[in-house]
Design a protein around this nucleic acid. Structure first.
Length: 338
DNA sequence: GGCAATGATTTCGG
DNA sequence: CCGAAATCATTGCC
């Protein structure tokens, strides 16, 4: 009696017939590996990967069940058939001497047959998993827009950190939590936002002002407090001559002031961290009031390059030519200076 | 159905 | 690995 290697009985559910021989069949090995990796043939799925969609999980479980059921069925059938054949042989052995070798050979044939069937099962299971993957995991296929609330949170962060819209890992995590999305989704969102904002600033002006105004009050308070605390009025504000190249004394000066304030004296830890964002917000408020209410600044105040002035994340090289000729909606007042 | 918005992926450079 | 830019694929609105 050729006993089963027993090495393949770890889970007690393994296939008896399938693996007669260790050596070959890269194909089978490939399938096995994949099933294992995909958590179909393994015990319970231990390693947690980024893939945790509940929908996906459910379907995978379904596949898993089918797979195991079928596998067991085959195994059982194989055993039954084997015993059946054995019985036949035994019966025949009365009339004809049958060598044990022959019996073994028959058993081998049977097992091979069944193992090929199992391979088919594995193959189709693999296919099913692949399809499932592409259906559920390729999020491109089934993407949902974020909730209004999530978008709001993200936008709020973006516009209040406009001079440096690169949330740290921590910040990303927090945003993800607040928005009920994953960290990589947050990263995606910021990546998209940055590039699209930069590409067409005009289109986002309204939005920017909106979100700036939202936090304007608190920011103003905070900054006021900071300024009050920090008596340094930065007396001179030298305003180096080079800064004259910018057309926007308003935001530019503001920015400068705050920067010096930030880096100077006073150990106020909270000030340093927050000022930056508040500057961003305030700048928008300033722009907004200039553009909408008072005739102060006039129309030239809010034009695409106020962003350049705020000096930012978007590279020193100005995109110069204003986007593409497909700019439509009329509300664009691009001044022709510069 | 066309079209813009938008989330995700791919490509490329550091 | 992160980010910019280009591109893809879906969603939602007209």
């Amino acid at each position: 009696m050729p006993d089963i290697p027993a090495s393949s009985r770890l889970t007690g559910l393994s296939i008896r017939g399938a693996q007669e021989e260790d050596p070959p069949d890269p194909q089978l090995m490939r399938l096995d590996n994949m099933l294992l990796a995909e958590g179909v043939s393994g015990p319970e799925k231990g390693g947690g990967s980024a893939i945790e969609h509940s929908d996906y999980r459910a379907k995978l479980t379904q596949i898993r069940q089918i797979y195991h059921t079928e596998l067991e069925k085959y195994e059982q059938a194989c055993n039954e058939f084997t015993t059946h054949v054995m019985n036949l042989l035994r019966e025949q052995s009365r009339t004809r001497p049958i060598s044990p070798k022959e019996i073994e050979r028959m058993v081998g044939i049977i097992h091979r047959k069944f193992s090929s069937i199992q391979m088919q099962l594995k193959q189709s299971t693999c296919e099913a998993v692949m399809i499932l993957r592409s259906r559920f995991l390729d999020a491109r296929r089934k993407r949902r827009n974020f909730s209004k609330q999530a978008t709001e949170i993200l936008n709020e962060y973006f516009y209040s950190h406009l001079s440096n819209p690169y949330p740290s890992e921590e910040a990303k995590e927090e945003l993800a939590k607040k928005c009920s999305i994953t960290v990589s989704q947050v990263s995606n969102w910021f990546g998209n936002k940055r590039i699209r904002y930069k590409k067409n600033i005009g289109k986002f002006q309204e939005e920017a002002n909106l979100y700036a105004a939202k936090t304007a009050v608190t920011a103003a308070h905070a900054v006021a407090a900071a300024v009050q605390n920090n008596q340094t009025n930065s007396p001179t504000t030298p305003n180096s001559g080079s800064s004259g190249s910018f057309n926007l004394p308003n935001s530019g000066d503001m920015f400068m002031n705050m920067q010096s304030l930030n880096g100077d004296s006073y150990q106020g830890s909270q000030v340093g961290a927050n000022v930056q964002s508040q500057v961003d917000t305030l700048r928008h408020v300033i722009n907004q009031t200039g553009g909408y209410n008072d005739g102060l600044g006039g129309n030239s105040l809010y034009s695409p390059h106020n962003l350049n002035a705020n000096g930012g994340w978007q590279d020193a090289t100005t995109p110069s030519s204003v986007t593409s000729p497909t700019e439509g909606p009329g509300s664009v007042h691009s001044d022709t200076s510069n």
